[in-house]
Deep mutational scan, measured.
Amino acid sequence: MQRVNMIMAESPGLITICLLGYLLSAECTVFLDHENANKILNRPKRYNSGKLEEFVQGNLERECMEEKCSFEEAREVFENTERTTEFWKQYVDGDQCESNPCLNGGSCKDDINSYECWCPFGFEGKNCELDVTCNIKNGRCEQFCKNSADNKVVCSCTEGYRLAENQKSCEPAVPFPCGRVSVSQTSKLTRAETVFPDVDYVNSTEAETILDNITQSTQSFNDFTRVVGGEDAKPGQFPWQVVLNGKVDAFCGGSIVNEKWIVTAAHCVETGVKITVVAGEHNIEETEHTEQKRNVIRIIPHHNYNAAINKYNHDIALLELDEPLVLNSYVTPICIADKEYTNIFLKFGSGYVSGWGRVFHKGRSALVLQYLRVPLVDRATCLRSTKFTIYNNMFCAGFHEGGRDSCQGDSGGPHVTEVEGTSFLTGIISWGEECAMKGKYGIYTKVSRYVNWIKEKTKLT
């Protein structure tokens, strides 16, 4: 034993070699072989497995989906700052455009905790909710729209109204504003409101030439003092309507412009014939205590009207009353817009006519005020429907199939267009061939041609 100890002390290297040989010859039971080890760690190889990531292109799944990435790591994937920024906006807080917040056709661009709407022409605001041009839906104005110097929408209202708090709607500024039905039992019968379409306001006024200088022999019209197929109006439903009495009662109609003036057809009036105007009328054979009678003290036909040349060209006249009318729910003026808007309103496509005229061709006159909704007829169809001249200051309205029309005794009465609950004068009943005849239409004086003249002559002093 002493000898062994001496050998170990003198030859430590020998001992180490012996131990190493023993270990190498022993069977290893701690580690699995290569094949079995792979069965336990069965993990798919990654895209760049075996390579240094710093030297390969980034992978979106590896960089940002398996674990949260930084902007720089995302930049490695896209290799483009702009594309990385677009991805980053949604990656950080989701897609803010998912709810489609942009209105009126706006395009949404996502941002971090926010979004941006790219608005089409005519709109602005956070969600493109603000109209900035009158060309689109009248700028959301209830009545009139004008573009300011910086191309912003400025709404306005006709006389007797003021802008509401929203700067879009119009509200009454006087007790009985024009064009409004205020009798409670008839307010439910107000005709369907007309909503502004998209309009090209630059070209809204037709490029028409008034044929002022045409000389033409007097034409022989049949029954051209021209509501057939209409309905009984309720008291106060058309408070701007008046009836004219002269040699015979209810020979023509008219509309209240203001307390002192009536507008009617020029062919209705004769110099030297006494005319009485009755406002607030409903049943011409009954006294309903809503009527107001006034005498006409002055007749002003349009300066281009000449019955000797043509009885229905420039067929418009103004009547001055001896005493002002007292405005109330049964006696209310009709609204008159400017030339541009009167023309736009007419193009809405349908209007209402009213009167006490004959209820059928050569038949009896109506006792109760009649009204009828009539569609506008395109000019080409209008011209083809008659052998008589249709001037540019006239328009056609009615039904091709016949059966409904204005008729004798309705002449001078109103053709009105309702705009968001307020009625505007767009025409004056003038003439036609018979009444409600198939293929024939009622012919009306186009008020847009005469609004400046009306307003100039009827100013209240």
Rank of each mutant, 00 (worst) to 15 (best):
I344L: 15
E10F: 13
K438W: 10
V4Y: 06
F251L: 09
C157S: 00
C18T: 11
W118G: 06
G160E: 03
C128N: 03
N452C: 05
A207W: 11
N104V: 03
G427W: 00
Q2D: 11
L369F: 14
D249F: 05
Y312A: 06
K440T: 15
P172E: 06
P101C: 02
V248Y: 12
S220N: 12
V183S: 12
F424R: 00
V195H: 12
T381P: 05
E98S: 13
N213I: 07
T332R: 12
S350Q: 13
E270Q: 14
Y441F: 09
V296R: 00
N104P: 03
R180V: 05
K293W: 10
E270V: 11
E27C: 09
E401V: 09
G432K: 10
L60T: 03
F176P: 00
G357L: 06
I299T: 14
M394R: 03
V154M: 14
T426E: 01
W88K: 03
S25I: 13
K457R: 15
S255Y: 01
F348Y: 15
S11R: 14
A37R: 02
D111N: 11
E323H: 10
G58C: 04
K126C: 06
K274N: 15
N151P: 09
I136Q: 13
D200K: 11
Y47H: 15
P333L: 00
C134P: 03
P197N: 06
P375E: 05
D410C: 09
V296A: 05
C268H: 01
R46K: 02
L318N: 01
Q2P: 14
I297S: 08
A265V: 03
R83N: 12
E142F: 05
R404W: 15
A436G: 13
D33L: 12
E291D: 05
Q216W: 10
T29Y: 12
S411D: 15
K51E: 04
Y341F: 11
V359K: 15
T417D: 03
Q185N: 11
S184K: 12
S187L: 12
A397N: 01
V56F: 00
C335R: 01
V248E: 09
A380G: 12
V248S: 13
V227K: 10
G349H: 08
L367H: 15
Q219G: 15
F123T: 10
W431I: 09
R162F: 10
N5R: 10
Y371K: 12
V174A: 08
E281T: 15
Q96T: 07
E82F: 04
Y441A: 06
Q216C: 07
E82G: 07
L376M: 11
F221M: 10
K45P: 04
N203L: 08
W431D: 09
Y115C: 03
H34Q: 09
C268E: 01
Q408I: 15
R180G: 03
S430T: 12
L372N: 12
K260T: 01
E129G: 07
F388S: 11
V269H: 04
Y450C: 01
N304F: 11
T342L: 04
R180H: 09
R449I: 07
K39P: 05
K311G: 05
C28D: 04
P44Q: 10
V277E: 00
G125H: 03
P177M: 01
A308L: 12
T16Y: 13
R358Y: 06
C178L: 00
T215K: 07
L376D: 02
F144L: 05
E79G: 15
T381Q: 12
T342Y: 02
C134W: 03
N127C: 04
K455T: 07
R140C: 07
A380R: 07
N59H: 05
N151D: 11
K339A: 15
V377W: 03
V368K: 14
G402H: 07
V263L: 10
A250W: 07
G280R: 02
L19R: 03
V419D: 02
V153A: 10
L321E: 00
V77W: 06
I210K: 08
E66I: 05
S148V: 10
K446L: 04
F31L: 14
D322R: 04
G351Y: 01
P333A: 06
F388H: 15
P197C: 05
Y312H: 09
N304Y: 10
H314Y: 08
F31A: 06
P235L: 09
T225S: 08
E323G: 04
R83L: 13
G253Q: 11
L20W: 13
R364D: 12
G160V: 01
M65Q: 08
T290R: 09
A26Y: 07
N166R: 02
L321G: 00
F424K: 00
K457T: 15
A397S: 04
F345K: 01
K339D: 07
T29A: 09
V273R: 11
N222Q: 12
E165M: 12
N213S: 10
D315V: 00
A233L: 07
I262W: 01
V257D: 00
T218I: 08
G432D: 10
E66S: 05
L425E: 01
P172R: 06
G280C: 02
P177N: 01
N222R: 11
G403L: 10
L163G: 02
E231S: 08
N295D: 10
